[in-house]
Design a protein around this nucleic acid. Sequence first.
DNA 1: AGGAAACCTTATCC
DNA 2: AGGATAAGGTTTC
Length: 318
Amino acid sequence: MSLTPSANSSSEIPDSLKVIKLSSGHDARDPVIFNIESEEPLNLDITLSSGQTFRWEKEDPDWWGGIIKGNRVFLRQVEINKSAIRLECKLSPSVKQTNLLENYFNLNKNYTEIYSAFEGDPILKLAALKYRGLRLLAQDPWEMLISFILSSASNIPRIRGNIKRMCEEFGDKKFDVFGEFHSFPSSSVLASASIDDFKSLGFGFRASYVWETSLKIAEDPGFLSKIASLPYIEAKDELCKLSGVGEKIADCVLLFGFDRLESFPVDTWIKKIVERYYFDGRAIPVKKLAEFGREQFGDYAGVAQQYLFEYARGLESE
DNA sequence: AGGAAACCTTATCC
DNA sequence: AGGATAAGGTTTC
Ligand SMILES: [Mg+2]
């Protein structure tokens, strides 16, 4: 299943974006190579190694490899300065999607404007400075759902490993000019696996959650597309009905899979940093913190969350 | 209704 | 070095 986040169906690509083709890929054995230039801030390393996405791998010193809407993509940053960025992109010539990368990186969203909104908040100002070019990605809702069910009380390296093994075991084997790769497995394929299969992949207690939710989605394929049209509160309530999905994971799915920037997922890192800098170190219940985040950061709550998350983790590792 | 306790496994900390 | 603690929480009791 592959759903398009609603905001992208009507997204306009701004004039500031240029696509420069370097190789037309007339020969079906050659990859298509082109550049993307944008005035929007985008730091590939920060964005693709962040905690919102789990399947990107830096295989070369420079090249990132990943899969977008079932298409394998290789990217490297060839320019990054204050006013413009440039990406070199390699795709299989079989890829027909237009604006695949522009949509994935949400290049229609004005992050300079968002940074301005962060100016009045001392912590966000610092975070935006340190992680400039971190962008929210427009990812697949189904992939987000399973990925974040796997994230609960886990850690990022482990989540990546769980997902990688699951894709290798259950994802469709596909071929392009670069060779073999595996897609993210469908709900029906996962529903026909067993809980023990998932335990042997290292899912632990999340194995039953993944199986139950896969079965539910396989039996009700319209479930996720209905979410897209619901108001935030109702969308979240619906998602929470799924096994393994509570408030936090519902917020992650809404933010990363449905472009709902009003979501403010509260995990242990957000809890720590928000208590420390916004509540004078006092302990605050997670539910209150989520309400605070949505209230405090408004339309950009989800972007603020992402910057605070990376900032909090950065503090720990320094 | 609200708050512990249980739940798997692997990084990371000290 | 290796035992303790924490990790993008949810469910169950
Ligand atoms: Mg649930």
